[in-house]
Nucleic acid binder design. Structure first.
Length: 506
RNA sequence: GGCGCAUUGGUGUAGUCGGCUAACACGCUGCCCUCUCAAGGCAGAGAUCACGGGUUCGAGUCCCGUAUGCGCUACCA
């Protein structure tokens, strides 16, 4: 039997990184075993579901490189089947009509409401499953329904016994029936509810393995009850540890903002492969110690046995731009940027430069070699794709900013630079062969002649040519920027210096 | 309140049948390299494996208890 797994998000917001990891694990499992990876949008909650969210999920999967097989299943389209299944269970005596009027619940206080209700039940000594309609005579039930009385459909959970399943991650699990309420299958307005829909759809889609977050374990017990009532074999289950916030709390969009949204990583310059790699290591570890892995390696190495059972903390510092997301994710992205094949990096950089109007068509043809050399030089110290248009701007445009700190450190400290730099520029202008080697020889000779340290001219040049205090080896930068631009930028210092001096200390 | 799950350095994890002087990665510190910053190389700090009992010659690894955290407990998904 071929493996069939699914990723079943509800489109009620942007794709959460925890959900993205579930998708990744499902995908890896399917690909590893030559099975199918299916996508099902659980849009049964019409109030909260949006098309925009559905699009965001699909885009997110695409960005991560997780392709799905077969058509997307929209759960709402299957509502008639879900209703039919519930009715069939009523007829079979496995479920019953509950004519209790619907209680309106305040969504915000629902959690404490549950606890209070549980306490009250315990105090009264009542079984939380006790429902007067559970044993209502079928004929009577039928009659009241025909008369148009509103009712919900609840599963009749057996009085004695327990459900059990072997979780592929957590091992043997069991739960006494007495802990499970007669769950509602159909609302009194006929709307099918989550647990019913999931089971019916999973059966219909012939899902063999359900791999989802650990927050679903209790649902799994309820769903098993449904499978049994329906007389259908259960799929295998594997629950995944959760991804928590640094305070060990739930990682939510509302509380933690954009760090939890997958699209953030795309928008802030992550290489998809890097983020995917990072995500794979959250809760799962390969048998080898190697952590940087291609998709193929990930697929080959992946196994459910490698998944841990403890929740993982997604480590980041709010309000700290340097650590806005997990350090390891940032490191991994930098690692990918500086080591991935330049051909693969190129399209991503192109998109980034284009978005910032720094892209020129010549980069595609005549200047392609120059572009590749430049990228190879500057990518060594970049962390995200954004850096190519920000820190890297001076390589693609003459219109770039000077960092005040760099100006103070490398230019203002030594007044002689106002004359030295242009004089050095004149030397460079005379060079017949302008390469890293000839520039270096020229600079060192000039420094000695003027009785200054080479470093003074090097650092001053760096700031004049790039606006920054840090960057690649300066002679390589001269080489990349070329003779004309280098000379011009060094000369541009004179009026600039005068303006600075007029302004006084910063 | 009830039920379930988890607990190895700051974080992610490894640790098969009990032999650990507890391993790897990120992060951190220092040094080297050097025109700066990275990268790289080297060195290092950081964990009495939540706590308390027990079994055993020997426990991170097995058993019991406690604590803490998380999850679920809805006519939400």
């Amino acid at each position: 039997m071929t493996v069939r797994v699914r990723f079943a998000p509800s489109p009620t917001g942007y794709l959460h990184i925890g959900a993205a990891r579930s998708a990744l694990f499902n995908w890896l499992y399917a690909r590893k075993l030559g099975g199918k990876f299916l996508l099902r949008i659980e849009d049964t909650d019409l109030q909260r579901s949006t098309d925009e969210s559905t699009r965001s999920i699909i885009e997110g999967l695409k960005w991560l490189g997780l392709d799905y097989d077969e058509e997307i299943v929209f759960q709402s389209a299957n509502a008639p089947k879900h209703r039919a299944a519930a009715n069939q269970l009523v007829e079979a005596g496995k479920a019953y009509r509950d004519f209790t009027p619907k209680q309106e619940r305040d969504d915000a206080t629902i959690k404490q409401g549950i606890a209070e209700r549980a306490r009250a039940h315990a105090a009264e000594g009542t079984d939380h499953r006790s429902n007067s309609f559970r044993d209502l005579d079928p004929a009577e039930s039928e009659r009241r329904a025909e008369a148009g009385e509103r009712f919900a459909v609840r599963l009749k959970v057996p009085r004695e016994g327990k459900t059990h399943f072997d979780d592929l991650v957590y091992g043997a699990q069991e739960r006494s029936y007495s802990e499970i309420e007669d769950l509602v299958l159909l609302r009194s307005d006929g709307h099918p509810l989550y647990n019913l829909s999931v089971v019916i759809d999973d059966i219909e889609m012939e899902i063999t393995h359900v791999i989802r977050g650990q927050d679903h374990v209790t649902n799994t017990h309820k769903q098993i009850l449904l499978y049994e009532a329906l007389g259908t074999p259960t799929p295998k289950f594997a629950h995944l540890p959760l991804i928590l916030a640094p305070n060990k709390g739930k990682l939510s969009k509302r509380k933690h903002g954009e760090v939890v949204s997958l699209t953030t990583y795309r928008d802030r310059g992550f290489v998809p492969a890097a983020f995917r790699n990072f995500l794979a290591l959250l809760g799962w570890s390969p048998s080898e110690t190697k952590e940087i892995m291609t998709l193929e390696e990930l697929t080959g190495e992946f196994s459910l046995e490698g998944i841990g059972r403890a929740n993982a903390i997604f480590n980041f510092l709010e309000n700290d731009p340097r650590h806005w997301t997990d350090d390891k994710a940032l490191w991994m992205n930098a690692e990918y940027i500086r080591t991935m094949p330049i051909d693969e990096l190129l399209p991503m950089v192109k998109a980034e430069l284009r978005a910032n109007r720094l892209w020129r068509d010549e980069y595609e043809e005549d200047d392609r070699d120059w572009l590749i050399r430049t990228l190879d030089l500057i990518r060594q110290r970049f962390h995200t794709l954004k850096d190519f248009s920000a820190q890297g701007r001076a390589y693609f445009s003459d219109d770039f900013d000077f960092e005040p700190a760099a100006v103070n450190k490398n230019l203002r400290k030594e007044p002689r630079l106002r004359e030295l730099l242009p004089a050095f520029a004149d030397r460079l202008a005379k060079l017949d062969s302008f390469t890293a080697e000839t520039v270096e020889a020229t600079l060192r000779a000039f420094a000695e002649e003027q009785g200054v340290k080479a470093g003074l001219l090097i650092n001053g040049s760096r700031t004049m040519l790039t606006g920054q205090a840090v960057g690649p080896s300066m002679f390589e930068v001269f080489d990349i920027l070329g003779q004309k631009r280098s000379v011009a930028r060094l000369h541009s210092g004179v009026p600039w210096f005068d303006a600075m001096n007029a302004l006084g200390d910063i």
